[in-house]
Nucleic acid binder design. Structure first.
Lengths: 149, 149
DNA sequence: CGAATATACATGCAGATGCATCTAGTGCAA
DNA sequence: TTGCACTAGATGCATCTGCATGTATATTCG
């Protein structure tokens, strides 16, 4: 492996910084609008786009990159808030399917404008003209890191 | 503000994913080597490169994007571990300077090979040929988000 | 100068996380 | 079919976080 160059290291630090600042800024925007955090959007949206709008707990966990433990409790909270529901999985009695409720879809809709504006202002507005290239690069990174599990 | 396009949104999700997976992978590598988390490296390194290797608590917090509360307690732990020390700031008696101990420098040195390899494998190896351009973009993002404080 | 305001850091409290562990249910294999 | 390793998910515990607040010091301005 070639040694790490200063420019690459600088890019890495910029990566960490950009993530921290942008997610914080969006989190603040959501909180200011009386809405839950970004993580809630991720959970709800992941279910929304899933086939039949339902996924098993561990599947959602993988999608949003949360440990099964954290997801189990996250679903507790989301269920208590009425935005998702746990239902038995007919195909496997160990498993539970998490499904989106109407209130969940509704929350998703309320969050989107605020979230969208945050992504737009802090992220998309700074992109070059080829978001695909960036996306491909980021996906290679995630893939590389995921493989080491 | 132009509406958010699908490609931009895809890039955003890839960004969140890449960050989550890569930092987790590096965290695991460090843990497997019996070393503390990435955040420790950030703290120590920030002090290491600071003028005179010392910064006030809130200054370090800003550098590594941690709330002052979190940093206060992080410094507690780091001090208990003997890698940093709190010293009164002669210029302001409210403030405390955090300084690196020899053991801190030593830990930094032990962590670097593992950390470097993680950055190299999961991040740098996936970069295009112009890390500067990516870096500039990421810095614009951080800057944009920071401004909204 | 002295009062009001602002800043640096610490801390009580209420969440939220990961790890190890537990329970229940699956599936393969002898 | 029964026994055993494996998987899905929940939970106790220790740890870490943010918010609101507290204490001490600095600064500003009438």
């Amino acid at each position: 492996m070639p040694p790490l160059e200063d420019e690459q290291l600088d890019a890495w630090r910029a990566f960490l910084n950009a993530h921290a600042h942008v997610t914080r800024a969006i989190g603040r925007d959501l909180a200011a609008a009386g809405l839950p955090d970004l993580a809630w959007y991720d959970l709800l949206w992941t279910l929304y786009r899933a086939p039949e709008r339902r996924l098993r707990v561990n599947e959602v966990a993988r999608e949003v990159v949360l440990s099964p433990t954290a997801m189990s409790r996250f679903v507790d909270r989301a269920e208590a808030a009425g935005v998702v529901r746990r239902e038995p999985d007919p195909a496997d009695r160990r498993a539970l399917q998490v499904t989106l409720t109407d209130a969940g879809v509704e929350l998703l809709r309320r969050m989107w404008p605020v979230y969208e504006q945050g992504i737009e202002r802090h992220f998309a507005a700074q992109l070059d003209r080829s978001p695909q290239r960036l996306r491909a690069m980021l996906e290679r990174m995630a893939e590389s890191a995921r493989r080491t599990y």
